[in-house]
Amino acid sequence: MKMKNLTAPRWWLMIARGILYILIGATMFVFATTYSAQAGQLIGAMAILAGILQLLFAYSNRLDKNNIWGVLHGITDIGFGIAIVLFSKGTIGGFVDMLGFWAMMYAFLQAVQAMYGFMGARGVRGAAGISGSSFVHFASVLAAGGLTFTLLLLPAGFTDSMGFIGVFPIILGILIIVLTTQMRTQATSVL
Rank of each mutant, 00 (worst) to 15 (best):
L99H: 06
S134W: 02
F135A: 12
L99Q: 13
R122G: 10
G94L: 11
I130F: 09
S134H: 05
Q110S: 04
G123W: 02
A127G: 04
Q110Y: 03
F87R: 13
W69C: 01
L142H: 09
V112C: 03
A114F: 04
L109E: 07
G100L: 05
G90D: 14
F118D: 02
I84A: 05
Y59V: 10
A128P: 00
T91K: 11
G90R: 11
L63R: 15
F108H: 01
V85K: 07
R62C: 13
T76P: 05
A144E: 00
M104P: 01
G123H: 08
S131H: 11
I130W: 06
L63F: 06
L109A: 02
L142G: 08
G126C: 02
S88W: 03
G132R: 05
S131W: 08
A139K: 00
D64Q: 15
G93L: 05
L109Y: 09
M119I: 14
I75H: 06
H73W: 08
A127P: 00
D77R: 10
G93R: 09
G90M: 13
F118R: 03
I78L: 01
I78N: 01
A139W: 00
T91R: 08
G74W: 00
Y106V: 02
V71F: 12
G70N: 14
G120W: 00
I92A: 05
M119H: 14
L86M: 14
I130S: 13
Q110A: 01
I75E: 10
I75Y: 08
A111Q: 06
G120P: 00
A128C: 09
F135T: 14
N66E: 15
A144R: 00
D64W: 12
N67D: 11
S133H: 10
M104L: 13
R62M: 15
G94W: 00
V85I: 15
Y59A: 10
H137Q: 04
V124A: 08
I82W: 06
Q110K: 01
Y59F: 15
N66F: 13
N66K: 14
Y106K: 03
I92D: 03
S60L: 07
Q110R: 02
G70T: 08
Y59I: 11
D64C: 09
G117F: 05
Y106N: 04
L142Y: 09
G120A: 04
R122C: 07
R122F: 06
R125G: 04
L72D: 05
G90E: 14
V96Q: 11
V141A: 06
Q113I: 01
W69D: 05
A111M: 15
